[in-house]
Design a protein around this nucleic acid. Structure first.
Lengths: 223, 223
DNA sequence: TCTGTTTGATAGTAATACTATTATTTTTAT
DNA sequence: ATAAAAATAATAGTATTACTATCAAACAGA
């Protein structure tokens, strides 16, 4: 198995966490802790205790916990983008390519050996519960200017292009992609916590029905 | 004009803010302040200064700021539900009824004289920027058990029923309604702050295109 | 071995999210 | 009109959070 590293936008960190041992412990324990405590209760103090280090040291890598969250989410989106590009490579049929992309977006994530020391399953749980917190702040505009959301935009754009290839006359390829990307996570959250809101919860695993739901919406809408 | 009051679930507050003058100042100034500062920077301390009262007094009405947010959001959802019921009353044609509901969901909100001293326009801005913060917490399940989300569920259910009436064979009426309800707000947020993510931003006002987008998605999907 | 980089240790601050107590004012019930 | 009850204000206090600053120790590379 080839071992890869995703290169992320420098603006995301104060000091590259992939460059040192402490840095990678911050990220991987950060994922575990945010998953466990939820983003609100997660603090750098608690994280520094977990990794036998100090608050001050964590601050050397990330300006604040919001930046760490954005970093982690960006890793996830870059990972999805990479996988979609890999899996749709050499596929001529536009419909088939879009279908593959939707499958990747909506499936339950298992640990990927290509990226050891990242717990993709925990990551997906964080994405489901916390990813919108990257955008929905008063400083979105500044964060956006700094390029913090390039990863998400790039993924959204990729799906948008696949949609546009299937039906070049459809007026809202990006809006649809964005909506689906959001819904894929939110529907799982609602299925787990407010099940009366969605039929996705009627199965043992929400992911099977989720896939059917999003493919139905996408292909019907652009047909 | 008839002046109305929406009755909200008792679990939403420690003491009914509609029962006293201080209570209604808490809610209406709360809306203004959350709109201005964003939910993260909003505090009961700041609110108490604005209304010439004290922190302790605010705490008598709401356990914490999250509860105040849920209260405000619930008011909004109840308001939408009331308006949809009002506007679709006596409409026989299921498609037409659904179309009316979608219009109400996706339109820019103006102040409604039926409910004086509520700034519906500010409220919509809060819904767009903050509403998901009601759900996406570690205490969702407890909050749900207490019935805090009944308002949202009820609205979602109403739309779900309208969808099911148009096409009783469609498998995901609730999932679709839930997705659309979320997307109607998120798309406006993205249009305002990350415009490259959605075609909704291409117009002067995002609301015109938003309406077209959501009706396209809904009617195509269930056709 | 000198030099620079990284980390650890420690300390400190303003703000937040509350809780508690008591005094004062306002409302209501008789 | 008055007493009792309820609501509010005033004040104080606490643990935690989200940082910033300083300095020393460890270590890595040339």
């Amino acid at each position: 198995m080839t071992v890869l590293q995703l290169r992320l936008n420098q603006k995301l960190y104060a000091k590259d966490p992939q460059s040192t041992d402490l840095g990678s412990r911050i990220v991987s324990k950060g994922i575990t802790l945010i998953d466990k405590l939820g983003f609100e209760s997660f603090t750098f103090k608690k994280l520094s205790i977990e990794i036998d280090s100090t608050e001050a040291s964590v601050y050397r890598y990330f300006e604040n916990k919001h930046r760490l969250l954005v970093y982690i989410m960006t890793w996830y989106w870059a990972w999805l983008e990479y996988r979609i590009q890999f899996e749709t490579h050499n596929i001529e049929d536009a419909k088939k390519a879009l279908d593959i992309a939707l499958k990747i977006i909506g499936e339950e994530k298992k640990n990927d050996d290509t990226f050891p020391n990242v717990d993709e399953a925990a990551l997906q749980r964080i994405v489901i519960a916390e990813s919108d917190k990257t955008f929905f702040t008063k400083q979105v505009d500044e964060d956006n200017k700094e390029g913090l959301f390039k990863g998400y935009k790039s993924l959204c754009n990729l799906i948008g292009n696949l949609v546009a290839k299937v039906n070049p006359d459809f007026h809202y390829p990006n809006a649809l992609s964005n909506m689906i990307l959001e819904a894929a996570n939110q529907q799982v959250f609602f299925a787990n916590h407010l099940p009366s809101l969605t039929e996705i919860s009627e199965d043992n695993s929400p992911f099977d029905k989720l896939h059917k739901f999003i493919t139905t919406v996408v292909f019907k809408t652009i047909s």
